[in-house]
Computed example of a mutant assay.
Amino acid sequence: MSTPSLRPGLAFDPTPLTDPVDQAQVRAHHEHLKTTRPRTSGGVFLSIVLVAIALFALIPLGMLFSDLAHLPSGAIVVASVLVVIAAVATLITVRVRRRVRRDREIRYRLDRFAEANAMTYLDRIANPDLPGMIFSVGGDRFATDVLRSTTSPVVEYGHHQYLVRTGKNSTLFRWGYIAIELGTELPHIVLDAVANNSALGTNLPASFPDYQRLSLEGDFDRYFELYCPKGYERDALYLFSPDIMARFIDRAALFDVEIVDNTLFLYTGPGISTTNPEQWAWLFDTVNALRLKADQWTRWRDERLEQPAAAIPSPSSPSAPPVRPQGVAVDGRRLRRGPNKVTLWATVIVGALAVLGVIIEIF
């Protein structure tokens, strides 16, 4: 993700991201976070598993050393092997400790950065209650390094991950996201960024039938594939006027975009909550630019929710015009999902290979 250089006169305070830190304060911050996390049995279970693995590993190691000891100069060979094992264990331990210290320092810096810029910081949220598509798939879902503005409209920056299990295999998916609160509920619309798709299709965890695909004018289709609920094509054209399309191309072409309920989501790879001031400058500029245009959307009303107004007792005005309340009718609240194209292609390829194997076996 490319970012512009940091400009003077920033509208936020980046100093907590780069100033020297007191390691004692970092450790105290880590201990404070530990007290705020819910207690789980995961750490105890992991410790038991590691101890069991170590105990089982001692058996073949003991047999190996016994065999080596009977060789000529066996004592030297055994000592050499022990030195190598100790060196590898020490190297792994040092790297793990460095990684742990670095992660703790990052969390400390992000917490101080949030405090200095009218935001709150949460290091971990289990099963975040957000309506975006990436928050409702897989298992073991949690968000990390979440920074949330304290003023309205609320903007949230963070990372999210989940596990998808297929048989005995599990795949970990990690995302970076920005959630921007909108002034009104809107139809469910997805902008699937063309730049991060593969030859097999979308990188998103959900796929949508082509009958919900809407082609827009200009170069917009070169950057995004837009999906909207059937019957809401005219509403999507109203929401994505030429000036708003240009703003999304300029500012959000690297993101997948989802509008659901009253939230605008931007999805990308992990790397949203960082200690890089230039990255935050770019993210804040992007969010502000999109919010300025998204404010126009508060005027949108779903004509399917029209309600007759109470009659006005006046000869000159026998009836009042219908009232259009805020909100979205049932048909527009969620897109209909289809089979994931990547999974579909994988199934086709596996099936083709199976058929090919049968043909080879026959002939």
Rank of each mutant, 00 (worst) to 15 (best):
122 L>R: 12
114 A>H: 02
113 F>P: 02
102 R>H: 12
98 R>A: 08
106 I>L: 07
97 R>I: 07
118 A>R: 15
120 T>V: 04
125 I>H: 10
122 L>H: 08
120 T>R: 03
124 R>M: 15
92 I>P: 07
127 N>T: 13
123 D>Y: 04
109 R>K: 02
102 R>L: 00
124 R>Y: 15
115 E>C: 07
96 V>T: 12
110 L>Q: 00
93 T>I: 12
95 R>E: 09
117 N>V: 06
110 L>T: 06
116 A>L: 04
94 V>C: 07
98 R>Q: 09
108 Y>S: 02
113 F>Y: 01
122 L>M: 12
113 F>E: 01
126 A>P: 07
103 D>E: 11
99 R>F: 01
103 D>S: 03
96 V>G: 08
120 T>N: 07
102 R>F: 03
98 R>F: 03
107 R>S: 11
117 N>H: 05
123 D>H: 12
113 F>N: 01
104 R>K: 12
119 M>P: 14
97 R>P: 05
99 R>Q: 04
94 V>N: 06
106 I>T: 00
123 D>V: 08
115 E>A: 09
106 I>R: 11
92 I>E: 14
110 L>C: 06
104 R>T: 03
116 A>C: 08
100 V>L: 08
106 I>W: 05
126 A>K: 13
112 R>L: 02
100 V>T: 13
96 V>E: 14
95 R>F: 14
126 A>T: 14
115 E>N: 08
121 Y>V: 10
118 A>L: 15
104 R>G: 04
123 D>E: 11
101 R>W: 05
103 D>L: 05
